[in-house]
Structures are given as C-alpha cells and as structure tokens.
Design a protein around this nucleic acid. Structure first.
Lengths: 165, 165
DNA sequence: CATGAACCTTCCAAGCGTTGGAAGGTCAAG
DNA sequence: CTTGACCTTCCAACGCTTGGAAGGTTCATG
C-alpha cells in the first residue's frame, strides 16, 4: 500500500504521515524498490490511532506517550488515565477562558445598537485600560488555546522600577 | 518613552510591539536621534487597545479591522458588531468542539480503572477505526481550533477509485 | 513504445502569535 | 571609563498543517 492509500485508509493526510515519520512519532515505513513508502495494515492501524487521538485534541507529544503505552503490553492503565485527565484539564481550562471571552463579548454586543451611528460599547471597552493591576488571581489573560500560541504566557517582564524619563 | 516603558504601560511586550509594527498592525513609531523607538501616550493607547482585543481572543486580522473602525469617526457601529459577533461565533464553535472532546474523554476516563492493570478503555477507543464512514452528519472531525490549524480541513483528496494492488 | 495522468519522492516556505537569543549600539550612573 | 540595563536588527524556534516546486515511478491508453 502506498502513502496515498494509507492516507485514505487512515484519515491522515500523506503530508502528515511523512511529517509524523520525520519527527519520529511513527517509525519509518518500509520502502519499495523504487523508493516509495510501503504500508501494511498494521501501519494503518497505528495511523488511525494517531488520527483518533488528534480528533480528541491530544497534542503530538501526548500521542507519543499514548502510543508507547499502547505498544506496551505491561502498561498500567493509570498512566493512560493520567494523560487523558491532564488533557481533559487542559480542555476545561481553555473552554472556561473562551467562555469568559464569549460572555464578555456577548454582553458588549448586546449593548451595541449595530446601526449607522459610530457610538459603540465594544470599541469603548477595547479602549479602556485593561484592568490587570488589580488584586485578582490574574488568570492567564489571552490564553484560550493552550496549544495554539494564543497569548499564553502572562508576559511577566519582572518589574523594572527605574523611571528613566 | 522608549519601547520598554511603552511595553510596561500597555501590557504588550516589546517583542510584540516590534512585531505589530513590522506587520503593519500599528504604524511605525517615532525614532530618537539614536534610533530608539519613541512612544507617546497616544501610541500606548493604541497598544492597550490591541492588548485588550487580544485578551478577548480577536485575531490580529480582526484587530486590524477594529483598529481601523476605531480610528474612523464616521464608522457604523454595525461594522464593529459584525466583527464581534463573528468572533463570538468562532468562540462558541470551538467551545462546542472542545466540550465534545472533553465529554468523550471524561466518559472514557470514568470507565478506566486507572490502576496497575493494562486494560484501558481509553486506548481501546483510540484503537478503534474512527467512525467516519457512517451516515451521520459528518461533523468536522478534528476541528477544534478554528484558528490554530488543528485538523480543520476535511482532507478531501477527491477519490481515487483505482485499487493499485 | 511513447505519452500523459496520477501518483510518488525530497526540500523549502508559509501561516498563526510569541518567545528566545545573538551581535552590536546607546544611555545613565558609579 | 566601565558597567549594566537598556535599545537595535536579524534569525530561529515552538505546534500543526498545508502548499508548491522539481523530479522520478507506475500504469493505462493510444
């Protein structure tokens, strides 16, 4: 089976199959005399595993761990569960953050007349200084994605008390 | 005010300020004789706008639109609202997908004993062929992110009926 | 057999937003 | 003058995926 057929059978694009091989997530496939990658049903099985895990939002790193456990007959299900629970926590966190954003925006949008006039509470909100310096827990500001690099790190920058004016 | 001070005052890192300038999101800052970027309070105001919009999850492209509207005294609030509603829709969609993932995983994790034995319903689920070919509505399989490139496109590849065996 | 379509190969680049670092210049204070 | 904290530009990486170019292979057709 060549890579195109393996892609169709597994649901993983040929591009991604090569990428996963390159990064070591999956072992190098066999090769035909002509140099074409050659896949067995077992390989497709692995690819489907990867695909399903991606569908559930696991990162490639997490999938790597899951794959190793999958192959390990002597694994402890606790290890699998730990990875899954960690991922669930990630998801719940990101969901909560996005819900917070959506709620704020919906509130603002509800107050916006949405007509030809320029006055807009949405812009008014964006304009106001972000209330970061409060004593609140300071929860990851933009963080939504957890995985995609959307404003994750709190942008510390320590403090730099000198006022060079 | 140099870039470090502007960063502290706006909550946008110096790195990102340079990046936003480079990509044209914000206009080039003034320069001192020595070549240092020089910021006014007005510049900081813009940066804070950007920051707040990022916090609400707007993409840079969306912020670009919002900034233009912000500067446009003759804007129609409807245009602002449209962008906001579009973003809310994005958020809601991504939230729903992540909730679906989390729910599935929680169900699986709940069935996993999480002990020293190898049997694990989580791995069993990952192993099974993804149920794509059913007659169901076929809802975006991997799509979670909307913005981050997480399995969005259904990976078409048309069809290629020949079975080269 | 020659042609061409449809595959395969590798390599390079982009995209999101952000961070890190290197190499060098500048500013203020000691 | 030296020192350290800033600034400058440029290049690279993160995670995941896609696109394309340039070239080789396979197979069915004319």
């Amino acid at each position: 089976m060549n890579i195109g057929e393996a892609a169709k059978a597994s649901g993983v694009s040929a591009k991604m199959i090569r990428y996963y091989e390159q990064t070591g997530l999956i072992p190098p496939a066999g090769r035909t005399a002509a140099g074409y990658r050659d896949y067995t049903m077992k390989d497709v099985h692995v690819l489907r595993f990867v695909r399903r895990a991606r569908d559930l939002g696991f990162s490639v790193a997490e999938i790597d761990g899951l794959l190793q456990l999958w192959r390990d007959r002597g694994r402890r299900s606790a290890d699998v569960k730990r990875i899954a629970l960690g991922h669930i926590g990630d998801l719940r966190r990101r969901i909560a953050e996005m819900q917070q954003m959506a709620a704020t925006l919906e509130q603002l949008a509800a107050c916006c007349s949405g007509d030809d006039r320029p006055d807009c509470p949405i812009l008014a909100d964006l304009e106001r200084p972000s209330q970061v310096a409060s004593d609140e827990p300071k929860r990851m500001r933009g963080a939504v994605d957890g995985r995609s690099p959307r404003g994750r790190k709190p942008q510390k920058s320590k403090s730099r008390k000198t006022s060079r004016k």
